[in-house]
Nucleic acid binder design. Structure first.
Length: 194
DNA sequence: ATCTAGATCGGCT
DNA sequence: GCCGATCTAGATG
């Protein structure tokens, strides 16, 4: 992996979250930790919108969901099912709610650290699923509100042109008929639900 | 291959 | 009190 990773600018995230989700495929999620630099290629994401999207935490304004109205490029980390953390990046202009959930990565750098954190060996099981992804990337509740446009945790330019994009319904969502806002890299072994 | 339950707890009605 | 933007292990066909 080359050493040069440049963060995406804030303007990238200040758009419709569905467009941001699609455009995120092929770019990198990077975390510079004490253990070393962890890098994954983004291969699966889901878009969530505001009060008009019943599947979104921002369907209502609550203390937890408030952050989805904040500055684009901000991290939204939430806890679910008593066990797992999920990482999102806030989208849309400030004052409009929206976010993209990171669902799966292709591990690119720091695989050994990821293996240790996950307790599994197979590369396609390291970060294929939102809970697995945060565990592999050493992301937790302390990152809620972090700025994902600058180190140590950020989204960096990759190779989006080389991705065959597929779309589908969001996973685990019942109240979202007619909103196929999950995007993933076609035929990638690193997406969830293989 | 497909299903089921259990873990485990914060946020919300 | 209920249930979730999940994962894993174990059972069953």
């Amino acid at each position: 992996m080359n050493a040069d990773l440049r963060p995406l600018p804030r303007a990238f995230f200040a758009r419709n979250s569905v467009d941001v989700a699609r455009d995120l495929l092929g770019h990198f999620l990077v975390h510079e930790t004490r253990q070393g630099r962890l890098v994954g290629r983004i291969v699966e994401v889901e878009a969530y919108r505001g009060p008009r999207d019943p599947a979104s935490h921002a369907y209502r304004l609550t203390p937890r969901s408030r952050i989805m109205w904040s500055q684009p490029g901000t991290a939204y980390v939430y806890f679910t099912y008593g066990n797992h953390y999920c990482l999102n990046v806030v989208c849309e202009p400030e004052g409009t709610a929206g976010a993209v959930l990171f669902r799966a990565l292709q591990p690119v750098e720091g695989r050994d650290v990821m293996r240790r954190a996950r307790g599994v060996d197979a590369p396609h099981l390291l970060a294929s699923g939102p809970g697995r992804l945060t565990q592999a990337m050493a992301v937790g509740p302390e990152h809620n509100g972090a700025d994902l446009t600058r180190p140590p945790l950020y989204v960096a330019y990759g190779d989006p042109a080389g991705v065959r994009i597929k779309r589908s319904g969001r996973i685990g969502i019942t109240a979202a008929a007619g909103r196929p806002w999950r995007f993933y890299a076609d035929r990638s072994p690193f997406v969830s639900r293989r």
